[in-house]
Amino acid sequence: RKEMTAACTPRRRIINLTSVLSLQEEINEQGHEVLREMLHNHSFVGCVNPQWALAQHQTKLYLLNTTKLSEELFYQILIYDFANFGVLRLSEPAPLFDLAMLALDSPESGWTEEDGPKEGLAEYIVEFLKKKAEMLADYFSLEIDEEGNLIGLPLLIDNYVPPLEGLPIFILRLATEVNWDEEKECFESLSKECAMFYSIRKQYISEESTLSGQQSEVPGSIPNSWKWTVEHIVYKALRSHILPPKHFTEDGNILQLANLPDLYKVFERC
């Protein structure tokens, strides 16, 4: 597991931080080997919608929660590849102030007048994250320049770009939802926020969305749709870069829909 690298990086740093090793061990302890084997050997059937997909393993048909699986995938990559990410360069710098204002204007932020003026909160978020810029760049390849612009994001899987519609809320939550006081809790909560931002979430995906850094293989055609990215990038990574937690067998994120021999018997009677 320590050699797990989802995106190509030129050289690998050895990380011996106790906090990170502890988080890696927790993933191992909570892992479910049968689910790992199923995901490793599954045959992708198709997307139901951005949140759900169908896959077959041996004779069984499964309904998989793409949102939760991708979130767990990105969390584990962030923990196992800690401080070893490439950088996704933004085509132009994104001012943190503008991103924070967009987030505060969104109902998702939960902002009320009692929280104070949005401009003041946005300025605080910019200054707060600028103070964390060195650590964010060093460990997470999340790059913020001296003017308070976001200029780079971590490359977690080759050819995958997170849904940038979720970027404003991500920046807001970096400042408000991460435990910045304790090292282990900081790395864990920061990785979880980043994983949620990178995950496939239906509120940020339309039929026209593209999450891939590449064009489709047909010359002159439109960019790959999110469905292509889910199948050929995300579920491909799920084959080798995730140890599913045991609770996925109990919380409805992986559901067995049918045993195909039983279905064949039904059709034979028709």
Results as ranks from 00 to 15, higher is better:
residue 94 A to M: 12
residue 199 S to K: 02
residue 57 H to M: 06
residue 199 S to L: 01
residue 189 S to R: 08
residue 61 L to K: 04
residue 172 L to D: 02
residue 104 L to T: 04
residue 259 N to C: 10
residue 251 D to H: 05
residue 122 A to M: 02
residue 169 I to T: 13
residue 97 F to E: 08
residue 79 I to G: 00
residue 59 T to V: 07
residue 181 D to F: 12
residue 265 K to E: 14
residue 69 L to E: 00
residue 165 E to W: 05
residue 143 E to F: 10
residue 268 E to H: 05
residue 231 E to G: 03
residue 113 E to V: 11
residue 170 F to C: 02
residue 206 S to F: 12
residue 190 L to V: 14
residue 64 L to G: 00
residue 113 E to D: 10
residue 52 W to L: 14
residue 162 P to I: 02
residue 163 P to C: 10
residue 116 G to C: 06
residue 214 Q to V: 13
residue 243 L to C: 11
residue 101 M to C: 15
residue 164 L to C: 06
residue 54 L to P: 01
residue 61 L to G: 04
residue 132 K to P: 01
residue 255 L to G: 04
residue 184 K to D: 05
residue 34 V to P: 09
residue 250 E to V: 11
residue 117 P to H: 07
residue 131 K to F: 12
residue 101 M to G: 04
residue 132 K to Y: 05
residue 176 T to Y: 10
residue 20 V to N: 03
residue 157 I to M: 06
residue 220 G to K: 12
residue 143 E to R: 07
residue 108 E to P: 06
residue 100 A to D: 02
residue 15 I to K: 04
residue 199 S to G: 03
residue 135 M to L: 06
residue 224 N to L: 13
residue 60 K to R: 12
residue 234 V to S: 00
residue 242 I to E: 01
residue 55 A to C: 08
residue 197 F to Y: 05
residue 150 L to R: 00
residue 123 E to T: 14
residue 67 T to G: 07
residue 75 Y to S: 02
residue 199 S to T: 03
residue 143 E to V: 11
residue 254 I to P: 01
residue 259 N to R: 13
residue 22 S to D: 11
residue 160 Y to F: 08
residue 41 N to D: 14
residue 134 E to H: 06
residue 188 E to R: 11
residue 27 I to R: 04
residue 162 P to T: 00
residue 194 C to G: 04
residue 234 V to T: 02
residue 117 P to T: 09
residue 5 T to Y: 05
residue 28 N to V: 12
residue 24 Q to I: 06
residue 52 W to C: 03
residue 76 Q to K: 01
residue 88 L to P: 00
residue 27 I to E: 01
residue 117 P to I: 09
residue 13 R to V: 07
residue 260 L to I: 15
residue 23 L to I: 13
residue 131 K to S: 12
residue 203 Q to H: 12
residue 179 N to Q: 12
residue 27 I to W: 00
residue 31 G to R: 12
residue 212 S to Y: 14
residue 197 F to N: 01
residue 170 F to A: 00
residue 2 K to P: 09
residue 3 E to T: 08
residue 245 P to S: 05
residue 224 N to M: 14
residue 66 T to Q: 02
residue 252 G to E: 15
residue 115 D to K: 09
residue 163 P to G: 04
residue 210 T to S: 07
residue 185 E to V: 08
residue 254 I to C: 10
residue 4 M to F: 11
residue 148 G to F: 04
residue 145 D to C: 08
residue 44 F to E: 02
residue 105 D to G: 13
residue 9 T to I: 13
residue 117 P to S: 14
residue 204 Y to S: 03
residue 270 C to K: 15
residue 179 N to H: 11
residue 79 I to F: 02
residue 125 I to H: 12
residue 162 P to E: 00
residue 82 F to Y: 03
residue 59 T to M: 14
residue 177 E to Y: 09
residue 188 E to P: 02
residue 187 F to D: 00
residue 14 I to W: 11
residue 156 L to M: 05
residue 145 D to Q: 03
residue 109 S to R: 07
residue 204 Y to H: 07
residue 48 V to N: 00
residue 148 G to W: 04
residue 127 E to A: 13
residue 59 T to W: 11
residue 14 I to K: 12
residue 72 E to R: 05
residue 249 T to E: 15
residue 211 L to H: 10
residue 174 L to V: 06
residue 139 Y to S: 03
residue 119 E to D: 10
residue 265 K to W: 10
residue 220 G to R: 15
residue 163 P to D: 05
residue 147 E to I: 14
residue 188 E to D: 14
residue 43 S to M: 08
residue 120 G to R: 10
residue 243 L to N: 09
residue 250 E to N: 08
residue 238 L to Q: 00
residue 116 G to P: 07
residue 6 A to S: 05
residue 35 L to H: 06
residue 18 T to Q: 07
residue 262 D to C: 08
residue 172 L to C: 07
residue 232 H to P: 01
residue 127 E to L: 11
residue 82 F to M: 05
residue 113 E to S: 14
residue 102 L to N: 11
residue 199 S to F: 00
residue 8 C to K: 11
residue 235 Y to R: 00
residue 189 S to I: 05
residue 139 Y to R: 03
residue 113 E to G: 09
residue 75 Y to A: 03
residue 8 C to V: 08
residue 260 L to W: 06
residue 231 E to N: 03
residue 126 V to A: 11
residue 17 L to W: 06
residue 64 L to Y: 04
residue 256 Q to E: 12
residue 171 I to W: 02
residue 156 L to I: 06
residue 66 T to G: 00
residue 76 Q to H: 01
residue 100 A to G: 07
residue 218 V to L: 13
residue 154 P to A: 03
residue 57 H to Q: 03
residue 189 S to H: 13
residue 210 T to V: 08
residue 227 K to M: 05
residue 121 L to W: 11
residue 266 V to E: 15
residue 129 L to S: 02
residue 154 P to H: 00
residue 167 L to I: 06
residue 107 P to W: 09
residue 170 F to S: 00
residue 224 N to I: 15
residue 229 T to G: 08
residue 248 F to G: 02
residue 222 I to S: 14
residue 218 V to D: 14
residue 171 I to G: 00
residue 143 E to Q: 13
residue 241 H to G: 05
residue 153 L to A: 01
residue 115 D to T: 09
residue 58 Q to V: 09
residue 141 S to A: 07
residue 114 E to G: 12
residue 200 I to F: 13
residue 29 E to M: 12
residue 16 N to A: 07
residue 59 T to I: 04
residue 217 E to A: 12
residue 77 I to C: 05
residue 126 V to Q: 07
residue 42 H to R: 02
residue 147 E to W: 08
residue 241 H to P: 02
residue 44 F to L: 04
residue 22 S to A: 07
residue 181 D to P: 04
residue 26 E to A: 13
residue 200 I to N: 03
residue 157 I to S: 02
residue 101 M to V: 10
residue 66 T to W: 00
residue 93 P to M: 06
residue 83 A to N: 04
residue 21 L to I: 10
residue 71 E to V: 04
residue 118 K to F: 10
residue 205 I to V: 15
residue 229 T to I: 10
residue 125 I to D: 01
residue 250 E to S: 11
residue 146 E to A: 10
residue 59 T to N: 14
